[in-house]
Design a protein around this nucleic acid. Structure first.
Length: 424
RNA sequence: GGAGAAAUGGCAGAGCGGUCGAAUGCGGCAGUCUUGAAAACUGUUGUACCGCAAGGUACCGGGGGUUCGAAUCCCUCUUUCUCCGCCA
């Protein structure tokens, strides 16, 4: 969430920038500023009341010790009134902070000035395209769900039997290709200096709030009621929350962690052709890279992360493009996001395989992840993350684009990991 | 799952209901000494909020209660440790 002081000091900017998201934040911002002023005033009177009580209590103690019980008991009467007053004030104060927090939770991150205006993904800004789209012969233009069946790589129906729709079962070479991709991605992350993490796949409520899945995206996560835990929708949640309530030193930057995890998403409201095959799943695998960086360096870092993901796709030899999300398409917590899309020649469409974002201090403020600068002052850090990469659509694009008359060719970089170079 | 013990600052570890934001040790930072380092010595060293400042307020695992006054007493939740049971 945004910091109240930042909103106060940059009111015009905040409202202006949030217009990129096609929202008029004026009323909510005004409300926040008003509530914060109220909060300060209440705190002032409350603090002085408490101070008075503290002094009185001390005096009573001294009197008792001096053996002046009568005087002490006389003073006790005064404390009752003070206590009542301070209790009501405390309640008021709690009310105000609750309201304030609720409003702050509703306010999304302010987009970076480079974020284009727009409403839908068609307004996203094309940043890069490697122009490697391939043409497939009509005879070899099968979508991955057909190829998966032909070569017995993935069994969607069996997944339905075991669990339900959106929980595919990978088999044989399909499973091996999957494992090869995970290892390849993790190795690359390692080469780029990320520490490998194997986090828990379930998180508590506090972690959900820390990275911003809660309170607004509750319906997206699977929730284990009995134990009050959430299945992670992305490794971003546990890996970033490692730094919840942590104060870092300046020399700790940058912190680079990467982790492979399955991801669980309820995807309520999805339907139709978009959910066919691997295009949208309830459980999928992903390698996530997460960085914690000095505020002055976060955008530089974002670009290096983009570069790292490009290298992955280059090595896999896939046609892809990078877009900068427009305000309307931008996630709630992000200040700037690049999406990576690979082109599927068989489906004849772009598939989103990665999303790299700079959250600036938005997550850090919820996480209370700070660093001490040279003057000893604590400031919020900037957090970033990106998929490097999400498996299913990579898998889909790989088998679709590489289908030949003789079978599906495996990209060279993966062969050491798969142990085979063709699926036939 | 059953029985017991515990939770205090970066760490270790004191703390009779008032003099406790909290002893002491270690660590960190700054300085003195030194050609430099070590040692020794001196000082400093939690977070948040309010306030121009002086200063004030809150926080001793979380929440609630008793009391004029709670780190200290009571209730509750969570976590950790020990023992027993079960088990990858």
């Amino acid at each position: 969430m945004l910091q109240t002081n930042f909103i106060k000091e940059n009111k015009v900017l905040v409202i202006e920038r949030l217009k990129k998201r096609n929202i008029d934040a004026t009323p909510i911002v005004e409300n926040i500023i008003q509530l914060d002023d109220d909060r300060k005033k209440t705190q002032q009177t409350l603090d002085s009341l408490l101070s008075e009580s503290n002094q009185l209590a001390k005096k009573i103690g001294d009197l008792f010790k001096a053996g002046k019980a009568e005087e002490a008991n006389a003073l006790k009467a005064q404390t009752t009134e003070l206590k009542e007053k301070s209790n009501t004030l405390k309640e008021q104060q709690n009310n105000i902070t609750d309201q304030l927090n609720q409003l702050l939770y509703q306010l999304p991150n302010i987009p970076n000035e480079l974020v284009p205006n727009g409403k839908t993904d068609s307004d996203n800004e094309l940043i890069f395209e490697n122009n490697k789209k391939v043409e497939l012969a009509q005879s070899n233009k099968k979508p991955h769900w057909e190829l998966a069946k032909t070569f017995d790589l993935i069994d969607f129906e069996l997944g339905v039997k075991i669990t339900g729709a959106g929980f595919p079962i990978y088999k044989g070479k399909g499973a091996k290709l999957q494992r090869a991709l995970i290892n390849f991605f993790l190795n690359e992350a390692d080469k780029n200096g990320y520490q490998e993490i194997i986090p828990p796949l379930m998180v508590n409520e506090a972690s959900g709030y820390g990275t911003g899945q809660l309170p607004d995206k509750e319906g997206q996560m699977y929730y284990v009621t009995e134990d009050d835990l959430y299945l992670i929708p992305t490794a971003e949640v546990p890996i970033t929350n490692i730094y919840r309530d942590v104060i870092l030193k300046e020399e700790d930057f940058p912190i680079k962690n990467a982790g492979y995890t399955p991801c669980f998403r309820r995807e309520a409201g999805s339907y139709g052709k978009d959910v066919r095959g691997l295009n949208r799943l309830h459980q999928f695998d992903k390698v996530e890279i997460v960085q914690i960086q000095h505020p002055e360096k976060s955008y530089e870092t974002l670009e290096t992360m983009v570069e790292q993901i490009k290298q992955l796709l280059n090595q896999l030899d896939l046609p892809y493009r990078v877009v900068r999300l427009c305000g309307g398409d931008l996630g709630f917590t992000s200040a700037m996001t690049y999406d990576f899309e690979v082109y599927s020649a068989a489906q004849e469409k772009w598939l989103e395989v990665s999303s790299v974002s700079n959250f600036e201090a938005f997550q850090a403020n919820r996480l209370k992840c700070r660093y001490k600068d040279k003057d000893g002052k604590t400031n919020l850090v900037h957090t970033l993350n990106g998929s490097a990469l999400a498996l299913p659509r990579i898998m889909a694009a790989l088998i679709e684009n590489n289908q030949t008359e003789n079978g599906i060719k495996i990209p060279e970089v993966l062969v050491p990991f798969t142990g085979f170079n063709i699926i036939n």
